[in-house]
C-alpha cells in the first residue's frame, strides 16, 4: 500500500495515506485530479473494481466527502479515494464513462445529498423518493423527527415511554 502511494504521489498531488489495515488505505485527492487518478489506478495498477461511491456530510466543516472505493483482486487490496467538496452548490465530475455502474450511485447521491454530477445519465430521475420537496434527506441538517412531526400524525391510543425513565421506574419503583 505504501509503495503504491509513493508511486501515485509522483504523478498526482495526493494527501497523506491513512492505512486502516494492511489491505485497506484511504487517501485524499483534489477534485480536479480524481479522474486521472481513477484511470491510472484502473488501467495501470489493476484496481478494476469500483466497490462503492458514497458521500459523508461534514456539516461543521462545510464540506462533503465523496469516497470512491476501488479494489484490486489480484493483490487483495482496497484503496479509498476521498474528494472534499464545498457543501454549497456541491458539484463533481461524473465518472459514468469509466464505470457504467457509477451512474446509479451518482443518481442516488444527487437525490440523497444534493450533489450534482453534470452529464450523468438519468441524473434527475427520481431514484427512491417521489415528489420530495424538502432539503436532501441524508444531509446532516435534515431532521427526520421534525419532518415526521410536520408531515404525519400519530395514531391515537399509542403510548410512548422514554427508555431512560422507563428503566428507572423498572429498577427503582419507589423512586430511590
Amino acid at each position: 500500500m505504501r509503495a503504491l502511494h509513493t508511486r501515485l504521489q509522483q504523478l498526482f498531488p495526493l494527501g497523506e495515506l491513512t492505512e486502516q489495515r494492511p489491505d485497506l488505505g484511504f487517501v485524499t485527492v483534489p477534485a480536479a485530479y480524481l479522474r486521472p487518478t481513477l484511470l491510472h489506478l484502473r488501467d495501470r495498477e489493476g484496481y478494476t473494481h469500483l466497490v462503492l461511491l458514497t458521500a459523508v456530510d461534514w456539516l461543521e466543516d462545510g464540506q462533503f466527502q465523496l469516497t470512491y472505493l476501488l479494489s484490486n483482486r489480484s493483490s487483495a487490496q482496497d484503496l479509498g479515494l476521498r474528494v472534499l467538496l464545498p457543501r454549497e452548490g456541491a458539484s463533481m465530475e461524473s465518472i459514468h464513462d469509466v464505470w457504467p455502474t457509477a451512474a446509479t450511485y451518482q443518481r442516488e447521491l444527487r437525490e440523497m445529498f444534493g450533489i450534482d454530477f453534470p452529464g450523468s445519465p438519468r441524473l434527475h430521475e427520481e431514484f427512491i423518493l417521489e415528489g420530495w420537496n424538502d432539503i436532501p434527506p441524508y444531509r446532516r441538517d435534515f431532521d427526520t423527527l421534525k419532518y415526521a412531526r410536520a408531515n404525519y400524525t400519530d395514531r391515537p391510543g399509542r403510548e410512548t415511554h422514554d427508555p431512560e425513565q422507563h428503566m428507572k421506574q423498572q429498577l427503582y419503583p419507589d423512586g430511590a
Binding site: 431514484f127 427512491i128 423518493l129 417521489e130 441524508y138 446532516r140 427526520t144
Partner: peptide, 14 residues
C-alpha cells in the same frame, strides 16, 4: 425501487 425505503443509513446516524 423505494417501496420499502426506511432510511436505514440515516436512522443509524441517530
Amino acid at each position: 425501487v423505494g417501496y420499502l425505503h426506511r432510511g436505514f443509513e440515516k436512522l443509524m446516524e441517530r
